[in-house]
Design a protein around this nucleic acid. Structure first.
Lengths: 358, 358
DNA sequence: GCAGTCGATGAAATCGATTGCAAATTGATG
DNA sequence: CATCAATTTGCAATCGATTTCATCGACTGC
């Protein structure tokens, strides 16, 4: 016959209401392995989980059988039974107002870093783009049991929503700046120190009219501006509001800022841009207008994305340790999942990398 | 409405062997909603799935209760019962030989694009980094029932492995070049046409000594080189092997190639680089050595990553339609999942974008 | 040879949802 | 007031794994 000789098949066929719908052909399941190995599913389960309750002989026999048939356990069933789950969700918000993807390589590198760490830890990464204005929905990934916790890249303008999610008990870690009374855990570099370092470096090299480019509605950027102002004060340079320009992370935010700055007639001899992409596009815009970098205008960026060192002129920038950051995000989240309490926020290494653009 | 409030609970408590282990506190489940709404789980299930079998009044009452309690169904249980799964896996290979992440923004942009399309279609994206030499393991995501299909970004050197996976019935779509007798479905731009366009453009602008930068072990790159050679032949220019340089996608592949090219003493007046990142780093290297782009050397890249237009000089490049590509990948995969048969490979728009670097 | 141990295995309950079928409710009609 | 049809709702089986408890054998010692 079909090789299935016992009556369990016909019994099953009788009582089985046909499965609702399912994609693909029949997938191999534990019962199949059990039948072929001449044991029960209990034994197969134990064998595949390296339980000491099965003979080594049985274990290897089953393991080989399973491997040769490309059998892998059904994760849904396993998770259901164990009420566990080795998946974490990562949310990369996008800006719907601009109907534009956030394509900054920094975010994407962070994503890659987190993916690597999770892979190493045996966790899966569920990636989701969500409307930055609706971070609330990120929690669904947790509520539905799909993921044990959520990593959000960037606070954007959603500080209050993040606080609320944390209050609700959603395991949550956010890449971003530390805010006074936040109730969620953040991981990020020391943005004040970063802004200070960048500005300090420009001041030390003799620049006095340093422009700041960024969107201060974002906490990280606001903190960097604090650092910028703090360095100016320390060096006895008065802050000049006309040199603080709004520039979004969208592709031509910095170009527009350069245009406005030039149009304003306000003299300047340096720019501190809040991301490398902004810095690079600003440099491009300056060069097109005949200004030399760093001779006429020195530029410092932020992030140290891979391209920064290959750019021409190579970009002076504030390095955010992306690998350490990914690892810290994952550590903090898993710690929170295990302990149930919100761990302290972590700061990752921040350092000035001096290259040709300043 | 049965008074199902107390006895069902005590009955459950009696027969329940305590759950093995589970993370977090008790999560809300359908039975809770049912109890609070005074109905059975069957009704709750139907209400939440908009079945016509429940009264509108009941449906809205249950829906509001569920929403107010932040209830979301357990996806594992649902998937198990329905033997379905709305998750697809995306695999971004990394090169372990170089112990280096593939950080090319093109791959990452593609990832973002796929994520967007899947979100729109109600699918989740499981992201996994795998050793490029072990693409085999990508199939585990399918075998374990975690995902209904797999998208692989880039063929790398694994053509044979991909063929084998397709033969085994793993729903699979690969971003990459079309090869003669491949048995898996690819989505990608027309690499031969792309290589031809880039070279043709350089030839039309009077360049004759055009270097080619790329790693021809990768199918896509080999195809682009075919286009490059084809264009040369058409214009009656003899191909010069000394101008075809190996350059990897790793960060300083192009810089090294520029060094070798200059060291060889072989004269050249243009470079066709197989990615924008290569092109940008090549331009940086040329400028450092005092060569002007495009006056001394014209450069054309490939991909049209977001930064290409903000670079200085703005990069002439071959645009691969990333959004269309992501959509095509998802379409092809879901089609394969539904139909069970391997759909035809798709070609996405490829076009020359002329900017300042050539 | 027989009770007592210990080790390996199997039977069955369970995780949280869906759904075919049966039962209950309602309304209409004879 | 009884019967029947049309709606709603509930019961219970089911998805594929894990794990408790019971069982079955093989040894051991007396």
């Amino acid at each position: 016959m079909r090789g299935r000789d016992d009556e369990s098949v016909s019994f099953k066929a009788m009582t089985d209401r046909r499965p609702p719908r399912g994609n693909g052909p029949k997938r191999l399941q534990m019962a199949d392995i059990a039948r072929l190995a001449g044991v029960s599913t209990a034994t197969v389960s134990r064998a595949l989980n390296n339980s000491p309750l099965v003979t080594d002989e049985t274990r290897t026999r089953i393991a080989e059988l399973a491997r040769s048939l490309n059998y892998t356990i059904n994760v849904d069933a396993k998770n259901l039974r164990l009420r566990q789950n080795r998946t974490i969700a990562m949310v990369v918000p996008y800006d719907p107002a601009a109907r534009q993807r956030v394509s900054d390589p920094f975010f994407l590198s962070m994503l890659g870093s987190v993916a690597d760490v999770l892979t190493e830890r045996g966790y899966a990464l569920l990636l989701s783009r969500v409307d930055a204005a609706d971070l609330q929905s990120a929690a669904q990934l947790y509520d539905s049991g799909r993921a044990v916790g959520v990593i959000v890249v960037g606070q954007w303008r959603q500080h209050a929503v993040l606080d609320a999610l944390a209050d609700r008990g959603v395991p949550l870690v956010v890449w971003g700046g530390q805010l006074p009374a936040q109730r969620y855990c953040t991981v990020g570099c020391d943005n004040v120190a970063g802004g200070d370092m960048a500005t300090d470096h420009l001041l030390l090299s003799g620049r006095r009219r340093i422009a700041f480019f960024g969107d201060v509605e974002l906490p990280e950027v606001a903190l960097r501006r604090s650092g910028y102002r703090q360095a100016l004060v320390r060096h006895g340079v008065a802050a000049n509001p006309a040199l603080e320009l709004h520039a979004s992370f969208l592709p031509d935010g910095a170009r527009a800022a350069v245009d406005r700055l030039l149009a304003s007639g306000e003299p300047f001899d340096a720019i501190f841009a809040c991301s490398d992409v902004m810095a690079m596009t600003a440099i491009g815009a300056l060069q097109e207008r005949g200004l030399k970098v760093p001779q006429d205008v020195a530029v410092v960026g932020y992030d140290d994305v891979p391209m920064a060192s290959y750019f021409h002129p190579p970009l002076t920038t504030i390095r955010q340790a992306i690998d350490a950051g990914g690892r810290a995000l994952v550590d903090a989240l898993l710690e929170q999942v295990d302990s149930g309490s919100i761990p302290a926020s972590r700061i990752v290494a921040t350092e000035l990398v001096i290259r040709g653009s300043s």
